[in-house]
Protein backbone atom coordinates (compact mmCIF):
# COMPACT_ATOMS: atom_id res chain seq x y z
CA UNK A 1 0.00 0.00 0.00
CA UNK A 2 2.13 2.84 -1.25
CA UNK A 3 -0.62 5.24 -0.42
CA UNK A 4 -0.09 4.58 3.29
CA UNK A 5 2.94 6.80 3.48
CA UNK A 6 0.93 9.75 2.19
CA UNK A 7 -2.04 9.00 4.36
CA UNK A 8 -0.29 9.15 7.71
CA UNK A 9 0.39 12.70 8.81
CA UNK A 10 3.93 13.66 9.73
CA UNK A 11 5.01 13.23 13.31
CA UNK A 12 3.33 9.88 13.84
CA UNK A 13 5.04 6.56 14.19
CA UNK A 14 4.27 4.58 11.08
CA UNK A 15 5.54 1.42 12.73
CA UNK A 16 2.82 0.82 15.36
CA UNK A 17 -0.64 -0.56 14.54
CA UNK A 18 -2.71 2.18 13.00
CA UNK A 19 -5.87 2.99 14.95
CA UNK A 20 -8.20 2.78 11.96
CA UNK A 21 -7.61 1.51 8.44
CA UNK A 22 -10.18 1.91 5.67
CA UNK A 23 -9.22 0.09 2.51
CA UNK A 24 -11.29 0.69 -0.64
CA UNK A 25 -14.55 0.82 1.30
CA UNK A 26 -17.66 0.92 -0.86
CA UNK A 27 -21.27 1.22 0.24
CA UNK A 28 -24.56 1.40 -1.60
CA UNK A 29 -28.03 2.42 -0.45
CA UNK A 30 -30.06 0.55 -3.04
CA UNK A 31 -28.46 1.71 -6.27
CA UNK A 32 -27.04 4.89 -4.74
CA UNK A 33 -23.27 4.62 -4.47
CA UNK A 34 -22.68 6.51 -1.22
CA UNK A 35 -19.09 5.54 -0.41
CA UNK A 36 -16.66 5.15 -3.30
CA UNK A 37 -13.32 3.46 -2.68
CA UNK A 38 -12.79 5.32 0.58
CA UNK A 39 -9.21 4.65 1.68
CA UNK A 40 -7.76 6.20 4.81
CA UNK A 41 -5.37 5.30 7.62
CA UNK A 42 -5.51 6.95 11.00
CA UNK A 43 -2.62 6.53 13.39
CA UNK A 44 -2.77 6.25 17.17
CA UNK A 45 -3.32 9.59 18.89
CA UNK A 46 -4.03 11.26 15.55
CA UNK A 47 -6.85 13.78 15.29
CA UNK A 48 -8.67 13.86 11.99
CA UNK A 49 -11.47 16.21 10.99
CA UNK A 50 -13.69 15.15 8.09
CA UNK A 51 -15.58 17.90 6.35
CA UNK A 52 -17.67 18.24 3.26
CA UNK A 53 -21.07 19.22 1.92
CA UNK A 54 -24.14 17.35 3.09
CA UNK A 55 -24.61 14.03 1.41
CA UNK A 56 -20.88 13.60 0.93
CA UNK A 57 -20.77 10.43 3.00
CA UNK A 58 -18.78 11.75 5.94
CA UNK A 59 -21.27 10.62 8.59
CA UNK A 60 -21.70 7.31 6.79
CA UNK A 61 -17.96 6.77 6.88
CA UNK A 62 -17.57 7.13 10.60
CA UNK A 63 -20.76 5.17 11.27
CA UNK A 64 -19.20 2.31 9.33
CA UNK A 65 -16.25 2.35 11.67
CA UNK A 66 -18.30 1.10 14.61
CA UNK A 67 -20.69 -0.84 12.42
CA UNK A 68 -23.77 1.29 12.96
CA UNK A 69 -23.80 1.00 9.17
CA UNK A 70 -22.26 -1.88 7.29
CA UNK A 71 -20.02 -1.57 4.25
CA UNK A 72 -20.46 -3.88 1.33
CA UNK A 73 -17.02 -3.89 -0.28
CA UNK A 74 -13.57 -3.25 1.07
CA UNK A 75 -12.08 -3.71 4.51
CA UNK A 76 -12.19 -1.77 7.72
CA UNK A 77 -9.69 -2.54 10.49
CA UNK A 78 -9.96 -1.04 13.94
CA UNK A 79 -6.89 -1.43 16.11
CA UNK A 80 -5.80 -4.33 13.95
CA UNK A 81 -9.13 -6.22 14.16
CA UNK A 82 -11.14 -6.52 10.96
CA UNK A 83 -14.76 -5.38 11.07
CA UNK A 84 -17.10 -8.12 9.97
CA UNK A 85 -20.50 -9.45 10.99
CA UNK A 86 -18.89 -11.67 13.60
CA UNK A 87 -20.40 -10.57 16.90
CA UNK A 88 -17.37 -11.25 19.03
CA UNK A 89 -15.04 -9.05 17.02
CA UNK A 90 -17.83 -6.46 16.94
CA UNK A 91 -18.06 -6.45 20.72
CA UNK A 92 -14.30 -5.97 21.06
CA UNK A 93 -14.30 -3.14 18.54
CA UNK A 94 -17.27 -1.33 20.09
CA UNK A 95 -15.59 -1.38 23.46
CA UNK A 96 -12.56 0.42 22.05
CA UNK A 97 -14.51 2.97 20.01
CA UNK A 98 -16.68 5.62 21.62
CA UNK A 99 -19.18 7.73 19.72
CA UNK A 100 -20.83 11.09 20.30
CA UNK A 101 -23.97 11.83 18.27
CA UNK A 102 -25.44 15.01 16.89
CA UNK A 103 -28.66 14.49 18.86
CA UNK A 104 -26.89 13.44 22.10
CA UNK A 105 -29.05 10.27 22.47
CA UNK A 106 -28.94 10.26 26.26
CA UNK A 107 -31.30 7.75 27.88
CA UNK A 108 -34.14 9.96 29.16
CA UNK A 109 -35.50 7.55 31.75
CA UNK A 110 -32.17 7.24 33.63
CA UNK A 111 -30.34 9.80 35.73
CA UNK A 112 -27.12 11.28 34.40
CA UNK A 113 -25.11 9.04 36.70
CA UNK A 114 -27.04 5.95 35.57
CA UNK A 115 -26.53 6.98 31.94
CA UNK A 116 -22.78 6.91 32.52
CA UNK A 117 -22.59 3.74 34.60
CA UNK A 118 -24.92 1.60 32.46
CA UNK A 119 -22.28 0.35 30.03
CA UNK A 120 -19.40 -0.10 32.52
CA UNK A 121 -21.67 -2.22 34.74
CA UNK A 122 -23.21 -4.35 32.02
CA UNK A 123 -20.37 -4.59 29.50
CA UNK A 124 -17.18 -4.31 31.53
CA UNK A 125 -18.88 -5.97 34.55
CA UNK A 126 -17.69 -3.30 36.95
CA UNK A 127 -19.02 -3.18 40.52
CA UNK A 128 -21.48 -0.38 41.02
CA UNK A 129 -19.42 1.73 43.44
CA UNK A 130 -16.37 1.60 41.19
CA UNK A 131 -18.48 2.53 38.15
CA UNK A 132 -20.00 5.51 39.97
CA UNK A 133 -16.57 6.74 41.05
CA UNK A 134 -15.38 6.50 37.46
CA UNK A 135 -18.49 8.34 36.25
CA UNK A 136 -18.11 11.15 38.76
CA UNK A 137 -14.50 11.53 37.70
CA UNK A 138 -15.52 12.08 34.10
CA UNK A 139 -18.39 14.35 35.07
CA UNK A 140 -15.86 16.52 36.87
CA UNK A 141 -13.69 16.47 33.78
CA UNK A 142 -16.55 17.83 31.63
CA UNK A 143 -17.29 20.26 34.44
CA UNK A 144 -20.81 19.29 35.46
CA UNK A 145 -20.48 17.04 38.51
CA UNK A 146 -23.45 18.68 40.26
CA UNK A 147 -25.91 17.36 37.64
CA UNK A 148 -25.26 13.72 38.48
CA UNK A 149 -28.67 12.98 39.98
CA UNK A 150 -30.71 14.95 37.46
CA UNK A 151 -32.42 13.60 34.36
CA UNK A 152 -31.41 14.50 30.80
CA UNK A 153 -34.66 16.40 30.24
CA UNK A 154 -33.59 18.86 32.90
CA UNK A 155 -30.30 19.81 31.27
CA UNK A 156 -29.49 22.27 28.51
CA UNK A 157 -28.25 21.09 25.13
CA UNK A 158 -24.65 21.93 25.84
CA UNK A 159 -24.77 20.12 29.16
CA UNK A 160 -26.39 17.06 27.57
CA UNK A 161 -23.70 16.83 24.92
CA UNK A 162 -20.98 17.07 27.55
CA UNK A 163 -22.69 14.26 29.44
CA UNK A 164 -22.75 12.28 26.20
CA UNK A 165 -19.01 12.75 25.84
CA UNK A 166 -18.45 11.68 29.45
CA UNK A 167 -20.67 8.64 28.87
CA UNK A 168 -18.58 7.53 25.91
CA UNK A 169 -15.37 8.14 27.89
CA UNK A 170 -16.54 5.94 30.77
CA UNK A 171 -15.86 2.92 28.60
CA UNK A 172 -12.21 4.06 28.34
CA UNK A 173 -12.15 3.86 24.54
CA UNK A 174 -9.00 4.19 22.52
CA UNK A 175 -10.75 6.03 19.71
CA UNK A 176 -13.50 8.64 19.87
CA UNK A 177 -15.80 9.34 16.94
CA UNK A 178 -17.76 12.59 16.79
CA UNK A 179 -20.70 12.92 14.38
CA UNK A 180 -21.42 16.66 14.07
CA UNK A 181 -21.45 17.09 17.85
CA UNK A 182 -22.28 20.79 17.86
CA UNK A 183 -24.69 21.03 14.93
CA UNK A 184 -27.78 20.73 17.11
CA UNK A 185 -26.66 23.24 19.72
CA UNK A 186 -27.54 26.86 20.22
CA UNK A 187 -24.55 29.08 19.40
CA UNK A 188 -23.79 30.08 23.00
CA UNK A 189 -23.41 26.44 24.01
CA UNK A 190 -21.05 25.38 21.23
CA UNK A 191 -17.97 26.75 23.00
CA UNK A 192 -18.41 24.70 26.17
CA UNK A 193 -18.59 21.47 24.15
CA UNK A 194 -15.65 22.40 21.92
CA UNK A 195 -13.60 23.18 25.04
CA UNK A 196 -14.17 19.67 26.28
CA UNK A 197 -13.19 18.23 22.91
CA UNK A 198 -10.03 20.34 22.81
CA UNK A 199 -9.03 19.17 26.28
CA UNK A 200 -9.67 15.60 25.18
CA UNK A 201 -7.51 16.08 22.08
CA UNK A 202 -4.66 17.55 24.12
CA UNK A 203 -4.75 14.58 26.47
CA UNK A 204 -3.79 12.32 23.58
CA UNK A 205 -7.05 10.65 22.44
CA UNK A 206 -7.35 9.39 18.88
CA UNK A 207 -10.27 11.37 17.45
CA UNK A 208 -12.21 11.39 14.20
CA UNK A 209 -14.60 14.33 14.00
CA UNK A 210 -17.19 15.19 11.42
CA UNK A 211 -17.77 18.86 11.99
CA UNK A 212 -18.20 22.23 10.36
CA UNK A 213 -16.31 24.02 13.14
CA UNK A 214 -13.25 25.16 11.20
CA UNK A 215 -11.77 26.99 14.19
CA UNK A 216 -11.71 23.71 16.08
CA UNK A 217 -10.10 22.00 13.09
CA UNK A 218 -7.39 24.59 12.88
CA UNK A 219 -6.60 24.39 16.56
CA UNK A 220 -6.64 20.68 17.17
CA UNK A 221 -6.64 18.61 13.97
CA UNK A 222 -3.52 16.92 12.67
CA UNK A 223 -5.24 16.36 9.37
CA UNK A 224 -8.36 17.52 7.58
CA UNK A 225 -10.05 15.22 5.08
CA UNK A 226 -12.45 16.71 2.56
CA UNK A 227 -15.12 14.38 1.18
CA UNK A 228 -17.57 15.06 -1.58
CA UNK A 229 -20.11 12.73 -3.17
CA UNK A 230 -18.85 9.70 -1.36
CA UNK A 231 -15.14 9.94 -2.04
CA UNK A 232 -12.13 11.56 -0.44
CA UNK A 233 -11.21 14.50 -2.63
CA UNK A 234 -8.37 16.08 -0.75
CA UNK A 235 -6.62 15.78 2.58
CA UNK A 236 -3.76 17.43 4.39
CA UNK A 237 -2.73 19.66 7.27
CA UNK A 238 -5.47 22.13 8.28
CA UNK A 239 -3.55 25.29 7.53
CA UNK A 240 -2.60 24.04 4.09
CA UNK A 241 -6.15 22.86 3.33
CA UNK A 242 -7.84 26.12 4.29
CA UNK A 243 -5.32 28.53 2.90
CA UNK A 244 -4.16 26.65 -0.15
CA UNK A 245 -6.93 24.39 -1.45
CA UNK A 246 -5.78 22.40 -4.41
CA UNK A 247 -9.00 21.11 -5.92
CA UNK A 248 -11.87 23.11 -7.33
CA UNK A 249 -14.42 21.27 -5.25
CA UNK A 250 -12.64 22.12 -2.02
CA UNK A 251 -12.33 25.73 -3.12
CA UNK A 252 -16.07 25.83 -3.78
CA UNK A 253 -16.90 24.26 -0.42
CA UNK A 254 -14.65 26.65 1.51
CA UNK A 255 -16.13 29.67 -0.22
CA UNK A 256 -19.60 28.46 0.71
CA UNK A 257 -18.95 27.88 4.41
CA UNK A 258 -16.72 30.85 4.93
CA UNK A 259 -19.32 33.14 3.43
CA UNK A 260 -21.57 32.22 6.29
CA UNK A 261 -19.10 33.43 8.89
Amino acid sequence: MSATAEMIAPGHNSGETPAIVLDKVNKWYGTMHVLRDVTMTIAQKEKVVICGPSGSGKSTTIRCINRLESHQEGRILVDGTELTDDTRSLDTIRREVGMVFQSFNLFPHLTILDNLTLAPIWVRKMPKAEAEELAMGYLKRVKIPEQAKKFPGQLSGGQQQRVAIARALCMKPKIMLFDEPTSALDPEMIKEVLDVMIELAESGMTMVCVTHEMGFARQVADRVVFMDRGEIVESGAPTRMFEDPQTDRLKLFLSQILRGH
Binding site: N66, L68, D91, R94, R95, V97, G98, M99, F101, S103, N105, L106, F107, P108, H109, L118, A119, W122, V123, A164, R167, A168, M171
Partner: peptide, 25 residues
Protein backbone atom coordinates in the same frame (compact mmCIF):
# COMPACT_ATOMS: atom_id res chain seq x y z
CA UNK B 1 -33.36 5.03 16.58
CA UNK B 2 -30.66 7.09 18.24
CA UNK B 3 -31.31 5.24 21.50
CA UNK B 4 -30.51 1.90 19.83
CA UNK B 5 -27.45 3.39 18.19
CA UNK B 6 -26.10 4.99 21.34
CA UNK B 7 -26.60 1.79 23.32
CA UNK B 8 -24.96 -0.33 20.60
CA UNK B 9 -22.09 2.13 20.26
CA UNK B 10 -21.43 1.73 24.00
CA UNK B 11 -21.08 -1.98 23.46
CA UNK B 12 -24.35 -3.10 25.05
CA UNK B 13 -25.81 -6.28 23.64
CA UNK B 14 -29.31 -6.85 22.25
CA UNK B 15 -30.99 -8.29 25.34
CA UNK B 16 -29.56 -5.69 27.70
CA UNK B 17 -30.40 -2.88 25.29
CA UNK B 18 -34.01 -4.08 25.17
CA UNK B 19 -34.38 -4.50 28.90
CA UNK B 20 -32.57 -1.40 30.14
CA UNK B 21 -33.01 1.17 27.39
CA UNK B 22 -35.79 0.40 24.92
CA UNK B 23 -38.54 -1.33 26.88
CA UNK B 24 -38.70 1.18 29.76
CA UNK B 25 -39.23 3.94 27.21
Amino acid sequence: RGQWEAANALGLRGGTVMRRVILPQ
